[in-house]
């Protein structure tokens, strides 16, 4: 997922994949260690359930390894892995969503998880963060995925399109509508909160 991955990085990745295909345990482990945290961060934000997210990550890696032979190193392994992970995740989320395609946010334990856990952060900034993440949780699945991949994982709309398997225009529409909904949900914030955070984050 590194937008700035150099040619050398890509070459290194290709070598790693080649070894992994041979069943090289060290290479497989390296692939897991390189990608697990980013994949987990994404899936956890999508599912908001640690256990589910871990299982989904495991399944995604196993599926990826099982079909390493079909993977072309012309592509980024991470994009491919995210594509598989999102697919697996979608299967799980489909079970939980209601007819409008929303997660049942009432089932999430929002308090505490998104709270002001960083000690160096002001209460206001912590509350603002919490509000933003609560709003993210209320986005539709593709909106949330697009927003997370764009901001948190710094993917281009083209890369997001590959992961979500949508045309780029559809990705943009999800991203834009997601933003619009975030803004609506955050409208209740007062100017001071905003000012506070902006001065904190420089």
């Amino acid at each position: 997922m590194n937008e700035n991955a150099s040619g050398a990085d890509r070459q290194q990745e290709a070598q790693l994949i080649a070894r992994a295909r041979e069943g090289d345990r060290v290479a497989l482990r390296e692939l897991v260690d390189l990608h697990k945290d980013r994949l987990f961060a994404f899936i956890w934000r999508m599912t908001r359930n640690h256990h589910d997210a871990e299982d989904i990550c495991q399944e995604a890696f196993l599926k990826a390894f099982a079909s390493l032979g079909t993977f072309s190193t012309k592509y980024r392994f991470s994009t491919w892995l995210f594509t598989i992970g999102y697919r697996v995740c979608l299967n799980g989320l489909r079970r939980k969503r209601n007819v409008t395609g929303e997660l049942d946010v009432s089932a999430l334990s929002l308090a505490g998880e998104n709270g002001a856990s960083q000690s160096l952060e002001s209460e206001e900034a912590g509350q603002l963060k919490q509000k933003v993440w609560e709003a993210v949780d209320r986005l539709s699945i593709p909106q949330r995925a697009a927003v997370l991949l764009f901001y948190r994982h710094e993917l281009s709309c083209q890369e997001i399109a590959r992961v979500l398997e949508f045309p780029v225009a559809t990705v943009k529409s999800h991203l834009h509508r997601g933003r619009g909904r975030l803004r609506e949900m955050l409208e209740s914030l007062n100017e001071e909160d905003l000012h506070q955070f902006r001065s904190l984050s420089g």
Partner: peptide
């Protein structure tokens, strides 16, 4: 509001 949301999501270090 839009910018601040983006910043918060981008700096997610949960």
């Amino acid at each position: 509001l839009l910018e601040v949301s983006g910043q918060i999501i981008a700096s997610d270090r949960e």
